[in-house]
Design a protein around this nucleic acid. Structure first.
Lengths: 225, 225
DNA sequence: CGCCGTCTTGACCTAGTTCAAGGGAGGTGG
DNA sequence: CCACCTCCCTTGAACTAGGTCAAGACGGCG
């Protein structure tokens, strides 16, 4: 039941608030105040695609994947949510994606309509909603660009993205299996594995375990694109 | 100088207001009222990447491409804007992409800060900003999914998208060259050409000219994904 | 200690790119 | 009015990045 993150930490708690853009402080602050803590076990569903969007979640520790399944059965992962991120907050009243914890995770849960009602009265919160949506759009746009790169470059981009999103600059504790990474990058698990292997053989990274990566030669990685 | 669209229409004007989601009426209505008309010639730049976002544009007729150039020189087209669409409206004060007319186009231009000031006073307009951003995010997410499909499926998706976005259900007047389509779909122009050729040979579509496509067998196209 | 899910590695295969060579259609000048 | 020119598009042939298939290897947990 305990995951990598837990066993390596010794404790279930993690340092959660990495560099948060000042912009969304109001939103996240509100969630912190009125959010109700809940533990989500690995692979448990937060909500399902096209289900009513009743709640908004903030990741305290662990990680969440938002995904959809294509007609041919392949799975597309739209986003990973890491500690500090807000999940499930959109204009639509139904969810566009399903969301599951990739690992045993701790969340703060807030009633969505309560948050929206707040925005209606507080123009500042309303502005934060816009900021949040715009931010999310930008991050999807970055992903769009990523999918045009080579397999090598995508995996590098992923590793760098994770390094940036986890406060620890050089040590990455991956909170998801290869399968999730592959479905996120639009590659196969074999290719992801090969590219990581290659990066290790060129001493750009070092893998203590398959989930634990240390960046060794950041500049060699960055020059890629 | 005259483009395909003009020569086939006989006139420069086009029926511009296709099915507009009721949500953004307030925004587009405002732009319609206070926007100043301007003609943009083919390949002319509306604004450049990382330049200050001074103006917001509404496409009256023609089309706009938003793009960025990768380090290796390849061009990524992030979006096409067609008549009725709003271009250049984000939270950021600098543009994330460059924007050019793919064909001689007519725009309505509005001062961005004027629009934002309006939103600050009018909570309804503020809500429209959120809606607009969320809508844009959704459309990028759809594109993300598209890039995971096969070449065949991507081209089909593109044709269907264009058919849907241009009011004429079955006749498509492409406002952009193959190069743009390829850079939008993450394919080469050769592959785009081949896939269209194949769709024609199977009688799914008919190409009167390379820019003018009639949908012949919609169900055959749709069953793809 | 042995099982099972996850990850790696190798050998082949295919979708799509690359390279190369024509074929139109529109526009311009003689 | 025609000839030419240029840009855009199509088509074919060879090549390659990444996928598929098939064995293992590792490591955590009972």
């Amino acid at each position: 039941m305990p995951t990598q993150a837990i066993s390596t930490n010794g404790s279930f708690e993690q340092p959660t608030d990495r560099a948060t853009p000042a912009g969304i402080r109001v939103l996240t602050g509100t969630v912190d105040t009125i959010g109700i803590p809940k533990i989500i076990s690995r692979n448990a569903e937060l909500y399902g695609e096209s289900k009513p969007a009743g709640y908004v979640y903030k990741v305290v520790c662990g990680a969440v994947r938002a995904y959809t399944v294509l007609l041919d059965g392949r799975r597309h992962i739209d986003a990973f949510y890491l500690p500090g991120d807000i999940v499930g907050l959109g204009v639509e009243d139904v969810h566009a994606f399903s969301a599951e914890a990739t690992t045993r995770s701790k969340m703060l849960i807030v009633n969505r309509s309560a948050l929206l009602a707040l925005a209606e009265r507080n123009s500042d919160v309303a502005h934060q909603l816009w900021l949040q949506a715009a931010r999310e759009k930008q991050s999807v746009q970055r992903r769009l660009l990523m999918l045009k790169l080579t397999a090598q470059e995508r995996v590098v981009a992923f590793v760098l993205e994770m390094a940036e999103r986890m406060s620890a600059r050089n040590l990455i504790e991956l909170q998801m299996p290869r399968r999730d990474i592959a479905d996120y990058l639009g590659l196969t698990i074999e290719t992801v594995s090969r590219m990581l292997g290659h990066m290790q053989s060129t001493a750009a990274i070092e893998m203590q375990t398959s989930r634990r990566i240390t960046l060794r030669n950041l500049s060699a990685l960055n020059r890629r694109w």
